[in-house]
Every structure is written in C-alpha cells, then in structure tokens.
Nucleic acid binder design. Sequence first.
RNA 1: GCGAGGGUGUCUGAGCCUGGCCAAAAGAGCCGGACUUAAGAUCCGGUCACGAAGGUGUUCAUGGGUUCGAAUCCCAUCCCUCGCACCA
Length: 926
Amino acid sequence: MSSHDIQQIEHETLRLWEHAFEPNPVPGEKFYLNVAYPYPSGAMHVGHGRTYIAPDVIARFQRMQGRTVLYPMAFHVTGAPVIGISRRIARNDPKAVALYRDLYRVPPDVLAQFTDPLAIVRYFSDEYERVMRACGISIDWRRRFTTVDPPYSRFIEWQWKHLGDEDHVIKGAHPVRYCPACDNPVGDHDLLEGEKAEILQFTLVMFRYHDALIPTATLRPETIYGVTNLWVNPDTIYVRTLVDGMPWIVSREAARKLALQDHTVEITGEVAGQELIDQVVSHPLCGEVPILPARFVEPDMASGIVMSVPAHAPFDYIALRDLQEEGIYAGIAPVPIISVPAYGDVPAKDAVERARIKNQDDPRMEALTQEVYSAEFATGRLYERYGGEPVRQARDTVAAMMTAEYGSIPMYEFDTRSVVCRCGGQVFVRILHDQWFLQYSDPAWKSQVIEHLDTMTLVPPEVRAEFERTVDWLKDWACTRKVGLGTRLPWDPAWLIEPLSDSTVYMAYYTIAHHLKRVSPDLLTPEVFDYIFLGKESPSLPDRETLDLMRREFLFWYPYDFRFSAKDLISNHLTFQLFHHVAIFPRSLLPRGMVVFGMGLLNGAKMSSSKGNVFLLEDAIREFGADTVRMFLVGSAEPWQDFDWRNELVASTRRQIDRFSSTIEELRMATGIPGDIDRWLASRLQGHIERMTGALDRFQTRQALQEAFFGIESDIRWYRRRLPAGSAGSSYLRALSSVWVRLLAPIIPFTCEHLWKSLGEDGLVSYAPWPVPDPSLGDAERELTEDLLARTVEDIESILKIIPLTPSAIIIYTAPAWKREIFVTVAAADNKGTVVKEIMKDTGMRRRGKEVPDTVRQCTTLIHKLPPHIISRLIQGMPDEELLFLNAAGFLEKEFGVPVTVRDAGESTHPKAVLALPFKPALVVE
RNA sequence: GCGAGGGUGUCUGAGCCUGGCCAAAAGAGCCGGACUUAAGAUCCGGUCACGAAGGUGUUCAUGGGUUCGAAUCCCAUCCCUCGCACCA
C-alpha cells in the first residue's frame, strides 16, 4: 500500500472515530484505565507514543469484549518548568530557542508568544491531542482539562481539606538546596554541578576558647571522647562573629552558611588561622586540647574547623603523624574509645599502616576513611567507660546529649563540594520554615497502603517488591512551594500545592470532568465534592439533580481498574496516589491495578529532548503510518521492557502490515469447498484466539501480536502448501478473515477498520465482538496428525539436504503395532526403570527378544524429545499413521517430485525399516 | 554507596518460577534461489561447527557447585537499566 493510500485510510477512519469513544454509564460491565497525564512543555516523541498506545490496545481489546471503556486524558500544567522555559525564550537563550524552533518546529509567531508560560502549555496540549488522535488512541476528549482550570483547583482544595482534616499534613522546617542569587530552592534540574549532592546533618561540637566558642562540625559526635586536638588551616583567615548573640570563631564561608540556617550572624573581626595554632580549647567531654595546623582542613566545609580523633579517623591520624615526624607535638597520642573486631586497638593507625600511606596528601585517604568509618559504624562499640553502646546507637545518644547539655546544634552541609546553580552561583543549604509536609512517614498511613497494595494487581509482578520498598522508605514530603503554577493551600494561601501532590486522585475527577464544565466553579465547594465522591449529605447543596448525575457517574467508573505509567514513577507518583486514595476514599473505591512501563531508546541510546536524541511521534506517523508505529511500539517488546526504536526495523513492520492487508484481500475471494485441511486450520485458529486473549488479559502485547499475527500467518502458509495444485482455498477463509481482522484491530485499528468494511461487515470493528474460541471447531486429533506430517516433511528435507544424490523415490515405513504398544506403555509408565520387566511379562513380546529392550530405549529417548502435550495425547490413542501418510502421499509427491510409498515396517526386510518408531516413521530415500 | 530489576545466537526477544520437550520459539537482518526487463514487494531455502541419512559436538555474562541430566537450581564475581525526594 502506498503512503498516500495509508494517509487516505487514516484520514477517513479518524472521521469515523471523531466521537466514537465517549462513553457514558450504561448497564453492564465497565473498564476504566488511565495513564499518568503529560506535562505539555514540548513535542511528543515516539517514547511518549508507547505510553499512550499500549493502554489503547488494552482499551480497544476490552471494548470489543463488550465492556464500556473509559480512557481519559488531561494535562498537568502545575509547577515551575514552563516558567523557566518562558523566561529562557524571553531572554532569547540560544539553547531554548533551538529546541523549540528547530527540534519541535514551533512556528515563529507561536514561539513569540512563548514568553507567556500558559501559551506554551496551551500550544503543546493541543498538539498532544492532535497527535494522540492521529495515533488512533481511543480517548474520551470531552473530559480533557488542565490542572490550572478553576474547577480543578476547587477539586484540589477539597482533596487537601481532607488531607488536612485527617492530620496527614504537618508543618515544619526543612533543609533544602538553595541559590541565593536566584533566591529560590533548586532541584536537580536546576543544577550545573553537584546533582548528586546530598544534604548531611553535622553536629556542631562547641569548644570553649577564652570567652568565645569554636564550633567543630562532625558526623560522628560519639568520638568526642577521643579528641586529642583541633585542626585549623594555618593559611585561612577565620572570622569572629556573633551567632545568635554569642561570639563564635568560624571560617568566613561558614558564617555565610549559618546565616542561611536559622541564625543571626554578625561578623565582628578576623583572626588568622596561624594565630589560633597552639592555643588551647576545652570541652567538658574531652577536657583541654590544643589547636594544631593541618592543610586538609577546608574553610568551605561546614564550620571550617575540625576536631581531631586520631585513633579512629585516618586523616587525623596521619596529619598528626606528619607533624610528629617533623619532631613536634610528640606528646600527643591517639586516644582509642571504640573497639572494632577486625582492627587493632587503634583502628586508624592500623588502617593507615596496612595501606602503607605516606602522608596526608595520599589520594587513597578518602577511601580509607570511608572504610574505617563503615567498619566502626557496622561493628564498632564504645568502650564500657563511655557507655558501651554500639556505634550506630551511640552516635544518636551522644548527639542528643550534647544538644541538651553542651550547646551543640545541627549544621547542614553537602556531601560533595561544588554545588552550582544553573545561574552560575554557588548553592547552599538553607532551612525553610513554615514548610508543609505530607506525613508519609506515618506508620499507620503506611500500613494502610501496604494492606491495600496486597490486594492490587501489579503488572509485571516483579515490581511489587519495589512498591513495598518505596512505601517503607518514604519520608515526609515537602508539599508546598512559593513559585510556580498551581492551587493555593486552602488554610495557608501563601503556599502553592506542589505539582506531585496535586495529581494523586484526579482519576476520580475524570469521571465527572465533562459535567463540571457546565457548572460555575464558584459552586464547587468542598461540600459539593463530598457529596459527589463520598455521598456525604449536607444542607443547601446546589442543583441536586446535576450532583446526583455526577455521583452516579463517579460510582459507575470508580474504582479505576488500571493505571499505567513508566517505571520511574514508582518511587514517587504511583506510590503517592495510593497514599492519597487510602486517605480519602472508602475501601471499595480504591485502585485495583497498575501496569508499569519500561523506557524508550532511540538507536540504542536513551531518548532525551535536551540532547536532541528524539524522533517526534508525528514525524513517525507521517513517515510510516499510525498502525506501523503502533504495531512496532507494542510488538517489539512487552510494555514493561525497554524498547529500542530503529527506523530500519520499523520499516519492516510496515511491510508486515501490507502483507496482512493483501492476504486478507486474497482470502476473502476464496470460494472452494472446505475440506480436511480446513478443519485443521479452524482448529488451530481456536488456539490462537484463546492464547491471544490470554496474552492481552495479562497485558502482553508483544506475545499477543506473535500469536495473532505470526501464528496465524504461518498456519496459512502451511495451509496453502497443503492445498491441491491450483486451489486458492475454501470459503472457510472468509470466516477466518473476519476473526483475524478483529484480533488485530486493537493493535492496528486503522488497517482493520478498513478491512472490516471491505469484508462487508457493518459498523466499526472497534465495537465488533471479540472472537471467542469455539470448542466444536477444536480437533486435537487432526492437529496431531498434521504435526506428524510436518515433522516427517522436515525429516525428509533434512535428509535430502545432506545426501548428494538425486532422489527417485521415497518410502515411509510406519512402526508396527507392537512398537506402538511399547510406546504407549513407556509413555504412560510412572517408573521407567521397571517398564522393560513389565513388558517382558507378555509372551508375545518375550519372543521378540533383544528387539524389545532396544525399542524401549528408543521410545524413551523419543518421548523425552516430544512436547508433553503430544505425549499425553498419544497415550490416549495412537493415530493411524499408515492412513495418514497414504492420504498425504499426493501432497508429499507434489512437495518432493518423486513417488512416495507407505509400508508397514513390520512387513519389510529393508535394513532401515527397523528404525521405525511410533510418531517417527523410518524414511528411505532412493 | 543503598534499593529494585536484568545479562540468551548478528540484532530484538521467548524459555528460567515448576531442571530432561533446548542448538534453544517468533520476528528482524544477512546469504542463496524463484518470479520480474530491472529494482522493490512477494514466495522458497539457508543462517554455531562438522556430517554421503533424519545425527554428533560446542554454546545461553564469567568462575565454581548440586544433579544421571542445568540456559533453567545454589554460591561468588563482572557488567547493564531504573530509583534514591521536592523534580516533571
């Protein structure tokens, strides 16, 4: 078929479908599936395509089975990304302009409007709808909305009122990555450098120095007992400050950081690191210790001053040793306080000496430090005189004690140096206040989710472990923001609800979205939604009739049956939505299942718009046709596997569809009288129907395609081979065509809609009844004998292939009756060891002597090689092989072009004839 | 580093749970043949090695182990993908 024909068919079909998939509640079964809605900030590529096409295949399959199917779509617009994009467009940022103008091909006049963030989402939402329609995705577009539409905001307010009323939202402080230049928290996407930086909580240990305090930052407060000295960098100028009114000495960088972490900081003077050297400081838990110089101390790390525990910190140990090798500070010795099984008394010394470290500049020091810390954390224990606790507990105990009694406070710092914002400025840790959190840490809430998760269908089943881990691992989630698009928090309108938190129960909103478009948003009070979703009465509800309509429609669709999403959302969105559902909806309305998708690759590399490695879905449709795109995307891998888009592979998919079309066109012309081989074809078809249906029930789109496309195709190939010369097949092929077109309709609906019409059928194939296997057409006996014939043909072919002579005749020797008896006995025997003895009890058998055990052995080998379903069938009764081959002699002669004779091996003296076994005749080629 | 999932022939990818149907489905690619003025499409055959009889040998990330028998079970190692939080 030419590209033009395909476009013509697609165009016509789309007109038929315009309003074909707009379901309303009707009696009977429903099926509600939905997909995580897209954030429309760019054009769709083929990776997005599969996310919506695979569910569409399921939607169409369910619809043909007679269910009322809802597949809705909306657009997620809340958050900050489009705001950033619009700014970059406004600034004429070359990268942004290139992406939108060249890759996404946004027309210049439209691009000019992109300085308005809403213009971006409007443009791409429309594009999404257009392209999704062009893919044949059977969405009910009446329900489309965006998450900044006023009715949706009313809905979110209702949702959050519940979350708030039920104490799932708490207020607190929260350390975040923060860019002072932008005056904003920064996420991973906003960073030039240090994406993986984690925020660590250090404990500041307050040492007294005359009338001032010197805070040292540590991750291991329990080592305070082993402190022998402090380290300062002699080349650094430290500052004297008033922190919350108290005089502190810290690095200049630290002063700046503390100011972002809830402290008032006033710099009052400077003090050179050199000046501090050899001064003495004190702490109640370790007494008086001196300050020593060390080059490894970084002023930009935490407070810029470090406490030294040479017995347990390799850095401290080696820095001290370096000094002592210069002959100074000889009086200071490591003070061990922790016992670690795999190390000596002084673990740091042990480790340094084992690794033969020369000095503190050795590059292996980082790794060594990690090693000692891990060992102590895992297996270390404080000495009895320091409490005797395991390190992992002592750490918290000591920190709490120092906080309560010795003025310690936390200080936050990154675990990696150099965290840089996209604006180029350095990023710091800042404590945000009055931040609202969803309390996912709540054990009661978690256990409700786990309990419900147990009842859900998860596809593929392997993801269950990951969901369970995620629920277990989730901590409180900062759910409000200052910037971006979104709905304001009802009880604290200074905050916006964060984008992952306003998209958790919108699947319920879809069920009434089209009705809400006719209602004034002002009427949508929490009471109204309480009535619609929870059936809760309250006085003075407006327009009761409309509310009842919506209540009925919601109850018709909910709970949803399946939610589809890529696997990267397991650890946030997919799990969040379970938390929110269990918090708000009664048990009977909780989600039933989820299907998790793999990722998309393009020519083996990850698809990424920013790297330009994308193939736009619309281009793919134009170049190959929508059905080809669909069939490739759902047929090259199962939905949960990653798939790789390669144009040359897609091109061959296109040929397969063409082949299917022309085969159907040929088949429907056949008018012959159905014969024996038609019974075989019909029987096989029932199996394909059953297996394809099963595959789609399990969301195995690839498996389904293999079964229905290639499975049926190869049957037809064999069928045609078996037809007498000149025959084009029987009128049964017409019935087969009807089944075949319907089976493939969910996957390649455009082609099938067209073929359905050319078969003369009425109505849309999209609503045609799904084929059901007809047991009366099943003929296992016929399939078995055909299988034997095909195996025999293969055997003959492989013989012909290796012998260099031109055959003049083929003789088939079928196994004699007594061998069939043995075969059945062996196949049915539970104990293969005693089977020979059993058989030899028969006097007739005994007379055959050595032939019998030989045959038993051959049969055993053969039985192992045959599929179990064949064996169990053969036990019930061996086919009449002689009759089979006699009937097929004409076919075999046509195939091989030589006379074929069939004989009973028992009546022949040919040396090969003794090889004959049941289901494996001896063959002689002359 | 931690958590989850994976590594199969030229490629995509079945099989692995429940060990003998496995030289390992199916598709793609490639090679050869038929058809055609030719190309494409289509059809037929081949595609680990060896073989003048339907077989034999070696293979399923690597190295061990269990078993009469391992792609499948156990242990170790290496490699890949996703997630690790305020971001859609």
